[in-house]
């Protein structure tokens, strides 16, 4: 469980995050949604400590992030898996080496055990027979899967995904979304996902936090969001013709 308490983040005079408090539960896919530029990535980077927050606190199962010393923070980092928007695979390493990397760095596992674990994770994301390929030889969807495999290989307690299906076609998006959700439930991970994809919102939104103008504007789940009266969230959901049509049809029936 991750508890976010009154956090704010500013770049010079640009207030990107203002006083956000929210709770992300274990075993659930928690979504942060909002338009491009609304501060989702900044919020996520604050959560994991890649950016320093100006105010507030983040509790990882009661452990306050900003009070952690060097070694505690390093310990926490090893419990965190993160999926970056552009996958961020290491170009100079093969698929297998990418997935083995966190293990080789932080465990005393013999190389064979590392390879076995990597293969297990790659199989879990349905990616076999690509072990010796380099990231430049993979499609967008395959890169995301490798990135997921790399994130879960050290068995994290917390998983962060920044726009996991950006740049993917709708079918692959659903595959990736479902994969993240299955992994979250299977290993009881606390998962936080940034997205602006309505499909994901409806498919995997166990808990949804809507960010607007750097503030937490609305909270709920994938059922609540379709019936809310909140204007900004309706503007966000029904910004596409497709969604408007769906709304029209559902209100008629």
């Amino acid at each position: 469980m991750i508890e976010v308490a009154n956090i704010s983040k500013r770049f010079f005079d640009h207030q990107v995050i203002s006083n956000i408090s929210v709770l992300f539960e274990r075993g659930k896919t928690n979504l942060i949604i909002g338009q491009s530029g609304s501060g989702k990535t900044v919020l996520m980077k604050c959560l994991v400590g890649l950016l320093q927050i100006d105010e507030g606190e983040i509790f990882y199962d009661e452990r306050p992030l900003t009070k952690m010393g060097f070694t505690e923070r390093k310990q926490l980092r090893q419990e965190i898996g993160m999926l970056f928007q552009g996958s961020a695979l290491f170009d100079s390493m093969t698929v297998e080496e990418n997935v083995m990397f966190p293990l080789s760095m932080f465990t005393e596992m013999p190389i064979e055990a590392q390879r076995e674990r990597a293969n297990f994770c790659l199989k879990r994301v349905n990616l076999t027979n690509s072990n010796k390929l380099f990231p430049s030889e993979l499609s967008g969807g395959m890169k995301k899967r490798v990135a997921i495999a790399r994130a879960i290989s050290p068995q994290p307690k917390y998983l962060f995904c920044d726009e996991p299906n950006s740049g993917l076609d709708p079918k692959n998006s659903i595959v990736i979304d479902n994969l993240i959700r299955e992994i979250t439930q299977e290993y009881q991970i606390t998962t936080v996902i940034n997205t602006h994809d309505m499909n994901s919102v409806i498919e995997i939104g166990d808990k949804i936090a809507f960010i607007y103008n750097g503030k937490l504007w609305w909270e709920g789940d994938h059922d609540d969001i379709l019936i809310t009266e909140n204007k900004e969230i309706n503007d966000f959901i029904y910004s596409t013709k497709l969604m408007q049509k769906i709304k029209h049809l559902t209100t008629k029936s």
Partner: peptide
């Protein structure tokens, strides 16, 4: 960032 998040 990916390296840093891993604790490296």
């Amino acid at each position: 960032d990916a390296l840093e998040i891993m604790g490296i």
